[in-house]
């Protein structure tokens, strides 16, 4: 869990800013659905595959990422070919392959923190009218990363304790104590956060200042 899907490196894709990569991916997501010519889609898939390879990720990691997707695409290809026609199925396969590979290229070459910062900037207009709060979102993200291992450890403790009493693994009997313990911990965690003077003082108001800081 503590390892992200990002693979450190210094390729041209790594150096590209997160926002640019996301923008291209987003445009491709729309553009590829407007295209239907297999040759064009095939070219797009080839380019996307080349981009993935340019990220120089270890092959084992690529296989782990792509194998489940490949199986799913194969099933969909068969279903579409049977229910529709081979042409539609080929177009679908190439289009999805291009899109998924392109997305993989972005994920492999972009640090989660950079993407998160980009999303925060994207939602800055929402933040300004008080709908989203970047401060809380980044605290929430940190808390999830902090507590996934703890929750999983608690889960295993409960499972072992129940197995020791001869009980079979039963999702209901496992989840009730897990959730109750976690909810009780939440009160302490919230107190601990408040005790350390959260939230930070507001920055001087005015969007212009925030944008300066963001870049």
């Amino acid at each position: 869990m503590n390892t992200s899907l990002y693979v450190p490196g210094d390729t041209p894709l790594h150096r590209l800013p997160a926002g640019a990569k996301f923008g291209v991916l987003f445009a491709a997501g729309i553009g590829l659905f407007l295209l239907a010519h297999p040759a064009v889609l095939g070219a797009a898939a080839a380019v996307a595959a080349a981009l993935v390879l340019s990220a120089r990720a270890p092959l084992g990691a690529l296989r782990a990422r792509l194998l489940p997707v490949g199986v799913m695409l194969a099933v969909l290809f068969a279903a579409t070919a049977l229910l529709q026609d081979a042409g539609t199925a080929v177009a679908m396969l190439l289009r999805l392959a291009a899109l998924i590979l392109l997305a993989l290229a972005v994920t492999l070459t972009t640090r989660p923190a950079d993407l998160l910062e980009f999303f925060e900037r994207l939602t800055a207009p929402l933040a300004r009218v008080g709908v989203a709060n970047p401060e809380r979102i980044s605290l929430g993200v940190s808390l999830v990363l902090r507590f996934v291992p703890e929750v999983f450890r608690r889960f295993q403790e409960i499972r072992e304790a129940q197995a020791a009493r001869g009980l079979k693994a039963n999702p209901v009997a496992l989840l009730v104590p897990l959730i109750v313990r976690t909810l009780k911990a939440a009160d302490d965690v919230a107190d601990a956060i408040d005790a350390r003077c959260y939230p930070p003082p507001r920055r001087p108001s005015g969007g212009a200042r925030t944008e300066e800081n963001a870049t």
């Binding site: 503590n2 902090r146 302490d188």
Partner: peptide
């Protein structure tokens, strides 16, 4: 607090240490 598990709120020690200082501005 009694239980440090619930008091350490960031995944990396240095990040957790920095949290209070950021809150102090």
């Amino acid at each position: 607090f009694q239980n440090p598990d619930n008091q350490i709120v960031f995944p990396i020690v240095a990040e957790d240490m920095a949290f209070g200082l950021k809150n102090l501005g």
